[in-house]
Simulated assay, not measured.
Amino acid sequence: MLTRKQIDLLKLIHTRMEQDGVAPSFDEMKDALDLRSKSGIHRLITALEERGFIRRLPHRARAIEVLKLPDALSREGFVAHVVDGGAPEKPVAPANAVPVEAAAMALPIMGKIAAGTPIEAISEAVRNVAVPGTMLNARSQHYALEVQGDSMIDLGINDGDIVVIREQNTADNGDIVVALIEGHEATLKRFRRHGGMIALEAANPAYETRLLRDDQVQVQGRLVGLIRSY
């Protein structure tokens, strides 16, 4: 089963090839699907490839072959095409959400996030986790991270927990966010703005608040849920 965004992208590629003989660019895909960045398109394309609807052709830069369509689209007619659409320059994560059952979705776990000393920035998925659909906003992209460390323990976020993150690049005071520091370190902290400075607050008295310039911190998402295994 595909998500609505995956179906929309597959239909867009197929329709444009039928009408114009050329595929939409990544920018056109992004705008058509109302996504904030091309990284979302990268994830959707990877998911479609993993599910056998398309394949990226080896030894051909930015080439994609459309192999099949979902039943709902197949009834409209289908002919396989090779699509030059702008493949990503580096490995990308699986799709953000794949339906598992009515009450759950599968999200990629994008590595570990530091609740302590910042670690390297998240780059690619390592496995999937089933997440209750009630945690997710259908109009947003989501991913999951494994917590490493105890700096947020007073808020009930423990080492080894899985946190569910909604992708966004802004935050309100008091939000718990994934913050990218100076472009290469990622951490999970409470966000507060003080004039032109950003405070990243721990929830453990053993850790000091980090005060950074606004241009040193990039918000990559906000905590919307937590999953714990016993």
Rank of each mutant, 00 (worst) to 15 (best):
P118N: 09
D31K: 14
R127P: 02
V147A: 01
E18I: 02
L212T: 06
L48M: 15
H194E: 08
R75L: 14
D20F: 09
G174V: 03
V79L: 12
E50M: 12
I41V: 15
M17R: 11
R62F: 13
T209Y: 05
H142W: 05
I198D: 01
G86Y: 04
E50G: 04
L67N: 04
S37R: 14
R43G: 13
P70L: 14
R192P: 01
V147D: 01
Q168L: 09
I119D: 03
G149W: 00
L69M: 15
K68R: 14
E146H: 04
A202W: 11
I64K: 00
N158Y: 11
N137T: 04
D84G: 04
A114W: 07
S37M: 06
D172K: 12
Q216F: 09
A115F: 07
P205V: 06
V83Y: 05
Q168T: 13
G40W: 03
P99N: 08
T209H: 08
G221M: 09
P88K: 02
A97L: 06
V163F: 02
I64M: 15
V66N: 02
S39R: 14
L211E: 13
E167D: 09
K38M: 12
M1E: 14
H142P: 09
P205T: 08
I162S: 04
I181P: 01
A114E: 04
I198Y: 02
Q168P: 02
G225M: 06
R62N: 15
G156I: 07
D214H: 12
A63L: 14
N96V: 03
